[in-house]
Write a protein that binds this DNA or RNA. Sequence first.
DNA 1: CATGAATGAGCTTTCATTCAT
DNA 2: TATGAATGAAAGCTCATTCAT
Lengths: 220, 220, 220, 220
Amino acid sequence: MYVLTPKEKEAKKQLIAAAASKLFQKNDFNQISMAQIAHESGVAKGTLFNYFKTKENIFMYLLLSGYQDYLKEVLQRFQKAENITSWNDFAAFLLEQNHLLIHQRPDLLRLNALRGPILEAAADREQTLAGREKLYEINRQLGQAISERIILLDVKQASHLFIIQSAIISGLMNMMNLDEFHHDQLPVDFKGFQIDLEQEANQIMLFYLQGLQQKLEGTK
Amino acid sequence: MYVLTPKEKEAKKQLIAAAASKLFQKNDFNQISMAQIAHESGVAKGTLFNYFKTKENIFMYLLLSGYQDYLKEVLQRFQKAENITSWNDFAAFLLEQNHLLIHQRPDLLRLNALRGPILEAAADREQTLAGREKLYEINRQLGQAISERIILLDVKQASHLFIIQSAIISGLMNMMNLDEFHHDQLPVDFKGFQIDLEQEANQIMLFYLQGLQQKLEGTK
Amino acid sequence: MYVLTPKEKEAKKQLIAAAASKLFQKNDFNQISMAQIAHESGVAKGTLFNYFKTKENIFMYLLLSGYQDYLKEVLQRFQKAENITSWNDFAAFLLEQNHLLIHQRPDLLRLNALRGPILEAAADREQTLAGREKLYEINRQLGQAISERIILLDVKQASHLFIIQSAIISGLMNMMNLDEFHHDQLPVDFKGFQIDLEQEANQIMLFYLQGLQQKLEGTK
Amino acid sequence: MYVLTPKEKEAKKQLIAAAASKLFQKNDFNQISMAQIAHESGVAKGTLFNYFKTKENIFMYLLLSGYQDYLKEVLQRFQKAENITSWNDFAAFLLEQNHLLIHQRPDLLRLNALRGPILEAAADREQTLAGREKLYEINRQLGQAISERIILLDVKQASHLFIIQSAIISGLMNMMNLDEFHHDQLPVDFKGFQIDLEQEANQIMLFYLQGLQQKLEGTK
DNA sequence: CATGAATGAGCTTTCATTCAT
DNA sequence: TATGAATGAAAGCTCATTCAT
């Protein structure tokens, strides 16, 4: 096997990315070295660079492909839930996706925060751009599917809701654990600093959807 | 006086932090070296470590003292604006602070995203804790001042609004510029990805405040 | 008190040295910083350099003054023990001093090993020389006192015995704990490597004195 | 062959160690930097750390492998000198090894003094332990060979003699040159401080062997 | 394509020493 | 004399990346 098929290549790429993802569950970006990723994925260090130009690219890939997976899953769920037609149904559906995102894909939320300040500075432009196009397309499809059933929303507005969703949740994550320090509970009672991520996210999202509904109904 | 007073020490600390802040306006955290900060602040590299145990500490200080300044300023503005008594007045006031935060203190929003994944891993616990206590206190004072005039809000709820504010705006920043790459506009039309930060922040905040008002009036 | 008397100066010198000595009981030379010594002795860092030109000088002082104390004490003990007149009495006396050196002054033995490779490279020549002259004088006095009672030994030979004593014991310390690593017992049975310091020192010293006695009696 | 065999790896390890050893002939441990070792050995600084985790490890390796070489050579010499069978023959043989150690391997004696207080604090445990095990084995073999011919000595006793030898000689080195300061002769006549290393070592060793012989013959 | 040895710029950090007050 | 803030050279070490095999 001296020349790999595109499929095999993609498989190895995912193998490497999966190793990085696993390490990212327990460690921060700066604590993860290429040597560790190589070890975890069972390939040599040099091989990593056959598949990703830089370390940052690996995590950018993780972010982009992870979001694609997430949006695909949301789309599937939406398609399955054929009974969703009203705004309220849809709002409930969206809050359920908060739960999915927070509990199944916290990595995406953490990567969101790193994208601008850390990853983008050293990630490969082409690779990133290609990933974003795919992501954009899925986001658009999802918007399309939603707009077909939820009469108040056009495609762009529906797509955009998922940007807002991620903004809210990853923003809340940025502000979380101010009553801890590096996983240790501080010996101080910081009540106003405490955040129950999911509850808070649902609250903000709910108010947002209510406000949006009124606004859209108003302009209509 | 070769033995510096606490005030003078604090001043030097701020001198160093100011240099770091200036560099942070144009560069990302990883691109800024202690050597640069020393050069920019006009002190020797060793001196930095007399005032901050680690590089991360400098930026943690920037974040904490910056937020203190921000909240103090908000408090002053609120105290000046004596005519604010109704919920609607207050909502308008809060949206104005969005503008302040976004345009005067974007550094705080960027630091927010770094705090958990980057800074906290290597910042000094004591220094951080002390800063947070001060911050918490100011946040509480602000909440107090607000709750005295806005009848629907108790201290904790009012204080918490500023956590929410930062969460929303820094979360939106996390999601911004998906149609760019490292400051270059991408040759792709990513409409759904576009965010007008201030407008979007105002929108979310406004809907949030409306929702909150209704909720609080309901429970009353 | 702007001009200290020589006595006050010497007292402060010893204060500093005592602090260094205390730290040296628990830490190795490289682990002890001037900042620690300053803190432990309750003076400012700069003050240390008014009394000792370099860090190495402090430890050289410790070595030289410590040995002076040790030899003075040996001399006193010898003078008290008036009954020592035979070679065998003297041999027993010397072995008792092994015990004293090993248990009361292990610091001197450790400093012996550092003198050449570490301390001398950066110690002050004059200070060192002055200390050594004093030490030499006491060593000579001790030799004198011994040679007056032990007929086989002349002054130089008697003095020299204390050099030999230190050589043997500090040499054994160099070879000790090969069955440990940094204070942890190794999970290996290194029987041949084990040394019971005092017993071994006594053995070597005893054989040495026996051999020396025969030799001196022969040449007489 | 870009994947090095264990042999090649060991060879490079020795290349680096040899460079360090060469520098150690003229300089003290603290004066030698990793940069110098890299330069001297012709590899990059980073490469050093692929082979030795710390600077101290390099010198620990030097000590352990050097002693292995020394003991191996002693063993070979002993095996060649088939005529050694009596205690006196053996004593003479051992004194010859003093000469070898003092003149061919003074580095080992200097490293002995550094081992405990300097090297062990920062050397790698595993690497050190592995080296010691080999050393112990060779020491045992040598003891075995000797005990087969020298009837008074069992394996452990014979092995132990080489620990004693190193203790005596490195201990004498600790006490040497008290009449010098950093290679300069002091303008003082410190007769009692003077040591002729080899002669003194031979003397102590000889008396020790005589004493031991009598003791062993007595218990027999 | 895979390997992993080699690279070396770059990093943060230390700490003995100086010196203005 | 005492202080301790400031110094800055120098250190050990890391790690993403390269490239010979």
